[in-house]
């Protein structure tokens, strides 16, 4: 297996974990991207830290684009299907209180049974959808 399948994922994952635990230790917040988005959309006033975190995410993407010319290979799917996927991700993370980061990393990291259950469920339906649409 190539290093892009083990070494860089481990290092990148470690950096994700470091960013998430620093946000908890220093600011007392869960680094769940969907929760941060929900809060940024619906919390008046005190939502500043969320906008700054999101700005940091965008800045990382901008740096990658400008200096490393990173281009994601997005699946060639019809736009209505992308729309359906976006709606499912938005509504699903709202009802399910989290996504890959909030449940998969912070939640499992705290050994939350809700997050372990949610992660098992979205991994399962994710596998089913990927096989159905890309298998």
């Amino acid at each position: 297996m190539a290093s892009t399948e083990i070494i860089t994922p481990l290092l990148g994952g470690g950096l994700i974990g470091l960013a998430a635990i620093l946000l908890m230790l220093l600011n007392g917040r869960i680094a769940g991207i969907s929760g941060i988005l929900h809060g940024a959309l619906f919390t008046r006033g005190a939502g500043n830290w969320r906008l700054l975190f999101l700005a940091g995410l965008v800045a990382s993407g901008l740096i990658a684009k400008l200096f490393f010319d990173s281009t994601p290979s997005v699946p060639a799917l019809p736009l209505p299907l992308i729309a359906l996927a976006g709606l499912l991700v938005g509504a699903g993370t709202y009802f399910g209180c989290g996504c890959t980061s909030g449940h998969g990393i912070c939640g499992i990291g705290r050994l939350s049974t809700r997050s372990i259950a949610a992660t098992a469920v979205f991994m399962t339906t994710g596998v089913l959808a990927a096989i159905s649409f890309h298998g």
Binding site: G61, V89, G92, Y94, F95, C99, V121, A130
Partner: peptide, 29 residues
């Protein structure tokens, strides 16, 4: 809501390969 929400999220994730974090990070591309 937790289980149904997670199930719906997983479907959208498996179709697109995009979850909320990477979606935001990829906006500047």
């Amino acid at each position: 809501p937790l289980l149904l929400g997670a199930a719906a999220f997983g479907l959208g994730w498996g179709i697109s390969g995009i979850c909320p974090g990477p979606g935001i990070v990829n906006l500047p591309t």
